[in-house]
Write a protein that binds this DNA or RNA. Sequence first.
RNA 1: CGGGGCGUAGCGCAGCCUGGUUAGCGCGCUUGGUUCGGGACCAAGAGGUCGGAGGUUCAAAUCCUCUCGCCCCGACCA
Length: 479
Amino acid sequence: MARNITPRSTDYSQWYLDIIKAGELADYAPVRGCMVIRPTGYAIWESIQRHFDDAFKRTGHVNAYFPLLIPNSFLEREAEHVEGFAPECAMVTHAGGEELEEPLAVRPTSETVIGHMYSKWIQSWRDLPILINQWCNVMRWEKRPRLFLRTSEFLWQEGHTAHATEEEAREETLRMLEVYRQVMEDVLALPILVGEKTEGERFPGAVDTYTCEAMMSDTRALQAGTSHFLGQNFARAFDIRFQNKEGDLEECWTTSWGISTRLIGALIMTHSDDDGLILPPHVAPVKVAVLPISTDEQVLDDVLLPEARDITSSLNEALGGLHTFLDTSFHLRPGDRFFTHLQKGVPLRLELGEKDMKGGTVRVVRRDTGEKLDVARDALIPTILKLLDEIQASLYGRAKAFREANTSKAATLDELKALIAEKGGFVETWFAGTPDDERRVREETGGATPRCIPLGDDSRGTCFITGREGRKTVFAKAY
RNA sequence: CGGGGCGUAGCGCAGCCUGGUUAGCGCGCUUGGUUCGGGACCAAGAGGUCGGAGGUUCAAAUCCUCUCGCCCCGACCA
């Protein structure tokens, strides 16, 4: 049988779905727009969770859990928030065989319930800050679902913090943005453009929204994570007040920030090739697959398997976890066994056969380059550690070079239109427009939206729409 | 919600226009054999109320009506 993945150049959507299918990552669920995350995909999510959760803990956050069902009246308390989320809320109207007095929303995000609880928990300046994170599922009834990128139900993490001062809340917003950037770059090997959202792209109810933007291998942008400075909007709506040192009542300043299973989609669309997924070693649940190869059962039992077990356990020890998979599917032929791991993105494959045993070597194959190395058994463990680091760095470097090659500049709307139509990718502009201008650009360019105003760049120039002085703004078509 | 397309075996499809024995093909699956270091081959099997309901007809996967569901492209969005 020939390859079962549509080439990326032929049909990107199909390619993406094929990789998910071939890698056994996820399926559509019986309910429209919902997905089933299969064990292979879920292991990736657990790995992502672990890395982010560690980073949250290091920055002083703790985990908690808030309810799935939110009274509709809660959502209505913040005007922009309800306007933004009402259209995509799933509502529970009946329970216990009766119609409910008040419909309950299946949480699309938890600012409201958490705000409600914070107002009870916070009395004094001594209660602040509150730094809580929640790992949970949310539901947004999207018009057009796409596995991992936009499913009706998805898994995510939402951090919600409350602070005594604006300055502290703003610091928190940017701190978590930086935490996101670091984990995404160092662990997921995703080059990230961090910046501020324009007015039209802001989170409903936020004062400022910051974002991590990544570029997929079809040059479209993907919003990989966001961090919001909510000002006192939710504190006002939910009465989150505290008494300061002087004895006066003040409203809190709150933040929220989130990443989701969408990151799995980002991994797929950044690193995969036409053979399947390629996982950066730091996030890969299985970093090394060990395949003893022989048709001789005696040789397998007496020589290869003991050796493979030995390699597996020393590797697990060296890697500090169960990251090595000993493949004993001997009912399959070698080619089939190779492709299983290839499609699932395992960074390194070790082949151990009689030839290798005689030569005192192990065949090591890199997933990212296909390069094959015969490594001396004595040097195996350190070589693998080194190779994993190399793969990690190489995947990041490759993606970053790709992003840079697909980033350009436009000074006028016509230039932007031409670039979006012909080249795609990120286009840097000067922009000072309103949400109406954003809509206009979107229509005129066939879908380009402002992705962000990059952080740490205070340069100014003439806005390509209004002619006023504008900030550097990156436009792109986004998922 | 607008525009397109599709429902036939676990998956992917052909057959439909022009109705006619027992509904086919590829992959996968089962069994046996030969293979086995980058997706094997041979042989024998299992597996279908042709999305659903109604109608036309001697006869419907095929024609007609209604209905349900799914996918793609837009608008909306992490």
